[in-house]
Amino acid sequence: MDNSIVVKNLGKKFRKYNQARPHTLQEAIVRGFKGMRASESFWALKNVSFSIREGNMVGVIGHNGAGKSTLLRLVGDLGKPDEGSIKTNGRIGALLSLGAGFHPELTGRENIYINGVISGLLRKQVHKQFDSIVEFAELEEFIDNPLHTYSSGMAMRLGFSIATHIQPDILLIDEVLAVGDLAFQQKCLDRIIDFKRKHCTILLVSHDTHFVAQHCDSAVWLDKGQIRNLGPAAEVVDQYVEAMQEKVAVYKNGSSQNKAKSNSQIAVAEYDEQSDKNSHNSENTLNDENDLKTNSDSIETGSATQAAEKLVEEAFADGEASLDDKATAPEDNELPKTSDTVEDNE
């Protein structure tokens, strides 16, 4: 069997633009074209190497902002690596941005043709698969109605159904398994496993560690743009979950420290303010055995406090996003939310 995807020493640098970067020529001229260049950059991916054999299914896991989606996009040739190379063998399909090109004024039928061709099918191939697409999306009765009469779930189903009919050699999936109701979600999962059975190589980004452990052959754990570990899916997922739980524990420990009025430094204090707002119920621990015990001893012991602080900082930097959804990845903190910043949206 051949390798379907070979990633060698991959590095991707993202530029950070000045917040005041001009968006219009008028602004640019007024400011004498200052601030057009990227002010600094950071490595979203660095030294990433792995290869995937034909027909294997590989899960990419890691906290928010670790570079998972960036990796997936680079494999899909959406962007150029700054270092290293990616070789892919075969036609790439993607379950990303489902329903691209959908237009609410057009009927379901018209949208299937447009989106099918956009997804990489020839018109006659769409024609051949048309009934199957409609059937899978369970939209037989509504197919000639304009899309704006569909519920958002119906439109998503249609998008997913088209995307799964393109018969790619390599399939990229970015966290789109939550489509429609439970029954349809199960259908989607079955479909993906079906792809695997047909020797389609699958690269999947997911926070659903269960799914990765259960169905993927192997997993890649990304941490701050670098590979923390890779290997058999179940093992890597176990390690990842363990590491995440430690962070959760430290996170909670941090907030109880605050209550004990410890003499922590600013980083911890700031962190605690945040966590106080977010989690007053820190006593309801997820995992008692992993929770560090907070007693006056450990707070007074200098080294222990420092170690705890370090962990807390790390947890604040990394684990936060997975604890409460509204938090952003650390790199995003200084970035404006406009389109001129290159960021890793996850």
Binding site: H103, E105, L106, E110, I114, V117, I118, L122, R123
Partner: peptide
């Protein structure tokens, strides 16, 4: 063939949209 089909679909989409409603 693919580029041809893509052009066809997207041009038709443009034209249909202009005169819808």
């Amino acid at each position: 063939l693919y580029i041809r089909d893509l052009l066809y679909e997207l041009v038709v989409r443009d034209i249909k949209l202009r005169y819808k409603r």
